[in-house]
């Protein structure tokens, strides 16, 4: 099967691992009439079982580690993980804080990083476009 179908029907699940809510509000801004990602077929879904893309925000506090792993496992393959914001990418203002289990890529494999504190909605949409490219590369390598 071709991944062409995938590119135009990505369903997104939003996972907050202890974020300050800045990035989460920018994710909501992506869905508003001004940016309207539904025109690309991107939908925010309420459960990881329906998701193709995990949008992870926040620096992963220690209590979230088993939950993050579980939600990653609950998402059906093929899937892509996108980190939104500086905190998830490398710790941000919480860098080396005592209650963190490290940035997200130490817990689950990450495909796309979108830096920014918080990133602009345009940057998030560009990140999703990068995720499409990644899915296509995976297909060419015969992984999927």
């Amino acid at each position: 099967m071709s991944l062409k179908a995938f590119k135009r029907a990505l369903w997104v699940y939003h996972l907050n691992t202890g974020s300050c809510n800045g990035c989460d509000i920018e994710i909501l801004a992506v869905l508003t009439p001004r940016y309207d990602v539904e025109r690309f077929g991107i939908r925010l879904v309420g459960t990881p079982r329906h998701a193709d893309v995990l949008l992870v925000t926040g620096p992963v506090i220690k209590q979230m580690v088993p939950r993050v792993k579980r939600i990653y496992a609950q998402t059906p393959d093929p899937k892509v993980v996108m980190v939104i914001g500086n905190c998830g990418s490398e710790g941000g203002v919480f860098y080396e804080s005592y209650n963190l289990a490290g940035p997200i890529d130490q817990i689950i494999p990450v495909t796309v990083y979108v830096p920014g504190c918080p990133p602009r909605p345009e940057a998030i949409i560009e990140g999703v476009a990068k995720a499409w490219v990644k899915l296509e590369q995976l297909e060419q390598q015969g992984v999927l």
């Binding site: 099967m1 179908a5 995938f6 029907a9 539904e38 025109r39 690309f40 077929g41 093929p78």
Partner: peptide, 17 residues
């Protein structure tokens, strides 16, 4: 808004998950 053939794309995608 999404193109009107979006439901077909959604189903095609779901079938390969």
């Amino acid at each position: 808004g999404p193109p009107i053939i979006q439901p077909f794309r959604d189903i095609r995608k779901l079938l390969m998950k």
